[in-house]
Design a protein around this nucleic acid. Sequence first.
DNA 1: CCGAACGCGAACGAATTTGATCGGAAATCT
DNA 2: AGATTTCCGATCAAATTCGTTCGCGTTCGG
Lengths: 278, 278
Amino acid sequence: MNFTWPVDYDRDVSDTQSDGRRPVFAAERRQRIIELVRANGAVSLRELAQAVHSSEVTVRRDLRALESEGLLNRHHGGATLPGELSREAGYTQKVSLESAEKAAIADLAGALVEDGDAIVVGPGTTTQEFARRLTRHAELAVVTNSLLVAQVLSASPRVEVMLTGGTLRGSILALVGSAAEHSLAGLRVRRAFISGNGLTAERGLSTPNMQVAGVDRALAGAAEEVVVLADHTKIGVDTMVQTVAPDRIDHLVTDDAAPRDVLDDLSARGVRLHVAEI
Amino acid sequence: MNFTWPVDYDRDVSDTQSDGRRPVFAAERRQRIIELVRANGAVSLRELAQAVHSSEVTVRRDLRALESEGLLNRHHGGATLPGELSREAGYTQKVSLESAEKAAIADLAGALVEDGDAIVVGPGTTTQEFARRLTRHAELAVVTNSLLVAQVLSASPRVEVMLTGGTLRGSILALVGSAAEHSLAGLRVRRAFISGNGLTAERGLSTPNMQVAGVDRALAGAAEEVVVLADHTKIGVDTMVQTVAPDRIDHLVTDDAAPRDVLDDLSARGVRLHVAEI
DNA sequence: CCGAACGCGAACGAATTTGATCGGAAATCT
DNA sequence: AGATTTCCGATCAAATTCGTTCGCGTTCGG
């Protein structure tokens, strides 16, 4: 925990540890290095060397060992906390995935919006793409719990954006939790445009996360009609928590690679289909 | 404490928190670039270079690398979010003004936060920079109405971010209106870190916009202590709506180019000063 | 008491990063 | 459409950092 440094005064360059003072164990030094990196987020090699009273070569060696244990990340000139950087690699990869399908779906869904509408838009990459189309409409009121959707719409002055409150879920940049659900309680809009992780005819829309499911339910509950935006990779798959029952879904916008039988089942349950041709 | 950048590496400082400024790692710079692009939708090359304190050549190299990872799209003059050339509103230019001062102020203000704190962070470029420092702390709960602050903190799992609801004010990417104020009503945190457009000893903190003023008041009201982050360009100027009275301000963090007399007046009114030396 | 093993620091070549410059391409203006 | 301004790509040079080898001193086991 706390280290008492036997002697901390000027150690000259040529000075060695021949004077009977207790040597600083390597483990102590490394512990100190980790503390420094954790405290500052990122520390330069030189600073570390000064701080632990060792040469830069030694610190480099330590950093190499610590990196192999996953305790920190090395960079040119120093080290940083692991995970602090290089984040979001997974997220943005999703954006470019099937972007043609998403764009086509978003285009088609845009036809379901009219000037002067009040709508709800849920989180997701498809709905984000959909939101981009909304800037053309005049006098739109959009309620969303997605920071990305809000940001997309922030530029257009003719769209009024209302964000729900709530705690931020960093992985999808959306607001969840009871505060988010509660802020939707008194709301009533015409249509909700939401996505999800899976859609089947039997169980409807679903998502693998409980908190996300709660808000999705609240989003759908605030609208008279529910529009689901889902590309073909989600049609026919079921995930953990059901969010919207099949008979509560009024429209489904998807692409023509979706399995035909599932679409037919959905249609039989009263879901109006909008299939984008890629 | 001198803040000269090229560290003289002959001196052996026993201080572990060395004051010399650390070189910015390439990974950090790229992360910063991504954040800037995300936040503004589209940023020009020149502004990016200015913001990260590097040459345009280096930024160009970074952009090339980031594009190959699919993290952004680059084209003549700058870079945009991947997926769409959504915004044609020209590259925003308010990205980096007096960024050195802001960074120093943010550093200083970071000392007013402790692990386990619950704090409020208001909108503004300075507070955004401040928020970047918060990722080092453990078990932090942050309430904010700024999308940019939320986004900065979204990457760090040790910080819980709560966003107020409300209508989005696109120009500053913050939530305002009665919903925002109402969502802060039942809240009580230790400190509020807010910025503003002007600060005088007579009228305290002020901002030119009524709606923004309302939320600022609510933000300050939710905290036991109010910390104002303001660079020297805001000290001594008064704008339309008063948001926080002088005697409600407990701390002021600013830089040493602020007019001395105003600081003295503020100090006489009980405001504790933290002046960053550039 | 002695040799081997180990940790640490110094030195030097290699590799990486960064900034500057210049010709050519692209966009904008007239 | 032509001219001009701006921006991009590539090569080069300087600085910094990294990896490796070697030497020195200490410690441990016999």
